[in-house]
């Protein structure tokens, strides 16, 4: 997996999914919204099963939980939608990401970034950009482009156990 190569610190947005702390590169993030009414898309892949209205634009809503083999939880008062812009097959696409909680935007020094370990992970390593150390905690920085890339978007987290071994 690609590690963070430059010396500049990385700006990330940290968010919670089912108690785990994940991070997105801040350059992807456009805005953070309170939960809005979601329109379900029948027969779509469950992980992008909704549409929302972001100021007159129809934007797909993704539940990353389903990509990481977690259960879908009912929304709480903390639930937010992080609107991101991701390059999918060479074109920028606006995607909303449902988060159980959004914490903060923070900087992580380049020295605190590490490559994704090959073992010791429940999740598919190609979805993970790198691991950031922050104090005693580890934060998983997600690779949104890989998560949404069309080849990968098809299969679900089902194959994760075999993939970690490979």
């Amino acid at each position: 997996m690609t590690a963070w190569k430059t010396d500049t610190p990385m700006e990330v947005l940290t968010l919670g999914l089912q108690g785990e702390v994940f991070a997105l590169e801040a350059t992807h993030v456009r805005e953070i919204l309170d939960l809005v009414p979601i329109t379900g898309v029948p027969n779509s892949q469950p992980f992008i099963g909704g549409l929302i209205n972001v100021r007159g634009k129809v934007v797909p809503l993704a539940d990353l939980c389903l990509k990481f083999g977690m259960e879908l939880q009912p929304p709480t008062i903390d639930t937010r939608i992080v609107v991101t812009e991701v390059m999918i097959d060479g074109d920028p696409v606006i995607v909303g990401i449902r988060a159980d909680k959004v914490y903060e935007i923070t900087q992580v020094a380049a020295s605190a970034l590490e490559e994704t370990p090959r073992i010791g992970m429940r999740w598919r390593p190609e979805y993970i950009r790198c691991i950031a150390k922050r104090g005693p905690e580890f934060i998983v920085v997600l690779d949104l482009e890989r998560i949404f890339s069309r080849g990968d978007a098809r299969d679900d987290a089902a194959g994760s156990s075999q993939r970690t071994a490979a």
Binding site: V41, N53, V93, V95
Partner: peptide
């Protein structure tokens, strides 16, 4: 619809209703 929903063929697109 975005590329992410390119595989859902039953819908020609989406629209926004009076209540948003």
């Amino acid at each position: 619809l975005s590329k992410l929903h390119a595989d859902v063929e039953t819908f020609a697109g989406a629209t926004i209703l009076g209540d948003g």
